[in-house]
Design a protein around this nucleic acid. Structure first.
Length: 599
DNA sequence: GATCAATTCTCCTTAACTGC
DNA sequence: GCAGTTAAGGAGAATTGATC
């Protein structure tokens, strides 16, 4: 339901409607940031940092509730204070979920006064229960089990937060009411959430089935494509890099590291410059410990990788990241080009977003972008995602008959470790990371390493134990085969790459060039209104279709800029200001035309 | 220099999943 | 039990290369 005109709209149409709804638009004052309007946030003493998080919400009903409801703000404030990595999206998602529950309760009870405080009262429990049920019914009446469970646990979090707040401020009546509510929730927990819990468990098992694994040939094609493109970009000394090249290289490297290490998508993408510098300087490898290694094969592996440790979940854990040599030069080139692309110095990430963003790229988006670059050459591209690589690598490793100590090292790399922090300063662990895990990952990474074992024999664990007998039966033979493959690589790594199947790069890749990096101007609602009011006739020109029709002339745009002073505090040159205004008019006109077409 | 049509990139949201 | 992570998609803002 629209908060302005009270009309009902579908989820996809609401966004568009909201932009044009007079009742909503009419209620907005001058261009001020939300944080200046939020009284609840001020009274709860939230930090400036958290106010910026509140500012980031979209200006829809749920967003507005998140910015104004004291209980939701309180929850957000606590989560923010507790969050070590300050993952604002996680906190915002929890706040929005709570807001959506409240909005659903309002709709169901026809009572627009229901707030976060009422949510924790026994007399609203029935409505709450119905709201949760209603929000977690999917298409064809299916249950959104994960979402339902999340709501349950979110309520428990909220109970703790609210109770603590009430006791701290001497509001004992409210605190007692929260106790009663908590008891009611506990007594109803099985009734409300048991089915969701069971469904989640069952779904987890289904996701591990062999059919959910990536196609081996696709994996090799992807790997070869990444290596070729990275090398092209890294070795072309005469190429003047633009934002496209930076983004392309960034996506290639993130995909390479995610694939090679079989990490979750987000992990390599978060690598910081500091962590990279440590890795580049071999800060985690003790040369004295390397000297103690007798096997020349294992010793040689130290020249094949850089080892980085990244902050993992929570504060105590460090997660290893092996960076193969073929990726070192591309990373150096990427860092070298940061200034050219105007990546801010304050952005600490190696794989930084462009356009003055302070964020890093999202891992799965990078893989997706690389797959898109490859074109339609893959059999099942939808299976080439970080988690599937992880699953594949664990499965392949499980097939090998290795001593328990080597398995422990591998599981630690995969993030299954017990207490990495406990041992993190002990060099033997990093030594093991390179020698055992690095050696294994390298063999899997290079197709030739498995030449001895044809694909048909290369089965996943669902096959009967007797079928795997051949692979598991003779451990010494297996070891010999792998060592052979490893030795081959060490002597002629480049030759092997040349022998691998080559994926023809698409002709259009890399053809584009831009003279300067993309800028990103964030339009406030009031500034948008100024443009729409001033250039209304052009924006609402429905005579032409698509992108056709003249935009206002330069002179007219300059008059507008001088009149409204949107760029007063920006050091932007006039031509850029004109370009931004014209783009805005262009985009608004497109939007207006598409909404007409929609009707 | 302006327009056109397509595309890219960032930000935000939703709906889950994972693993300690 | 629950904090953190992942996948996917939509909207908005901006750019690109071709063409006029």
């Amino acid at each position: 339901m629209c908060g302005g005109c009270k009309g009902f709209f579908g989820g996809k149409q609401f966004y568009r409607h909201r932009k044009n709804c007079r009742d909503i638009l009419g209620s907005h004052g001058p261009s001020v940031s939300f944080s200046k309007k939020i009284k609840s946030a001020d009274s709860l003493g939230v930090s400036e940092e958290f106010k910026a998080v509140l500012d980031s919400f979209r200006n829809d009903q749920a967003g507005s509730l998140c910015q104004n409801d004291p209980i939701i703000i309180l929850l957000g404030k606590r989560l923010w204070a507790k969050s070590l990595k300050k993952e604002k999206h996680v906190i915002m998602a929890d706040m929005r979920l709570l807001a959506n529950i409240i909005l659903k309760m309002r709709t169901l009870s026809l009572n627009n006064a229901i707030s976060g405080e009422n949510l924790l009262e026994r007399n609203h429990f029935e409505t709450l229960s119905e709201a949760i049920r209603s929000l977690t019914v999917g298409e064809h009446g299916s249950l959104k089990a994960g979402l339902k469970l999340k709501m349950g646990y979110l309520l428990k979090k909220l109970i703790k937060t609210a109770k603590g707040h009430y006791i701290q401020h001497g509001e004992m009546d409210k605190s007692t009411e929260v106790d009663y509510f908590s008891a009611v929730l506990d007594l109803n927990w099985d009734y409300m959430f048991y089915t969701a819990q069971i469904t989640c468990e069952q779904r987890r098992s289904a996701l591990r089935k062999p059919q959910a694994m990536p196609v081996e040939e696709d994996v090799h094609k992807l790997r070869n494509f990444i290596l070729e493109e990275m090398e092209k970009l890294a070795t072309d000394q005469y190429k003047k890099w633009d934002a496209h090249d930076f983004i392309k290289m960034r996506n290639l490297i993130v995909s390479r590291l995610t694939m090679f290490n079989a990490r979750r998508g987000g992990e390599p993408a978060r690598l910081t410059l500091e962590e990279w510098e440590e890795a580049a300087g071999d800060a985690w490898i003790d040369p004295q410990m390397v000297q103690t290694i007798e096997d020349p094969l294992e010793k040689a592996l130290f020249n094949q990788f850089k080892l980085a440790y990244q902050a993992g979940k929570g504060s105590k854990k460090l997660v290893p990241l092996l960076i193969p040599n073929d990726t070192v030069k591309p990373i150096e080139k990427l860092i070298e080009q940061r200034k050219e692309i105007d990546v801010p110095d304050e952005n600490p990430f190696v794989f930084a977003n462009t356009s003055c963003s302070q964020d890093h790229v999202i891992g799965w988006q990078s893989i997706k972008a690389v797959i898109k670059m490859m074109g339609p050459v893959l059999e099942r591209p939808e299976l080439l995602i970080a988690d599937k690589f992880r699953h594949r690598m664990s499965t392949l490793f499980a097939i090998l008959d290795l001593p328990a100590s080597e398995r422990d090292t591998f599981y630690r790399h995969m993030g299954h470790s017990e207490e990495i922090n406990k041992h993190v300063y002990q060099c033997p662990l990093s030594i093991g990371e390179v020698v055992k895990v690095g050696g294994f990952l390298k063999k899997v990474d290079e197709p030739s390493a498995f030449n001895e074992a044809p694909r048909a024999e290369y089965q996943y664990p669902s096959i009967a134990p007797e079928e795997t007998g051949e692979l598991n039966g003779d451990a010494s033979q297996e070891k010999e085969t792998n060592e052979q493959a490893c030795q081959e690589h060490l002597s002629c790594a480049q030759d092997e790459r040349n022998k691998s199947p080559v994926v023809e790069p698409r002709q259009d890749i890399g053809n584009k060039s831009s003279s300067k990096p993309r800028r990103y101007f964030r339009w406030t609602e009031s500034n948008t209104r100024l443009v729409k009011d001033y250039f209304g006739s052009c924006i609402m020109d429905k005579d032409a279709h698509g992108s056709k029709g003249s935009l206002p002339g330069k002179k007219e745009v300059i008059e507008f800029i001088e009149k409204v002073r949107i760029f007063e505090h920006n050091n932007m040159i006039l031509n850029d200001q004109i370009s931004i205004i014209k783009t805005k008019i262009f985009n608004e006109r497109q939007k207006a035309r598409s909404s007409v077409k929609f009707r």
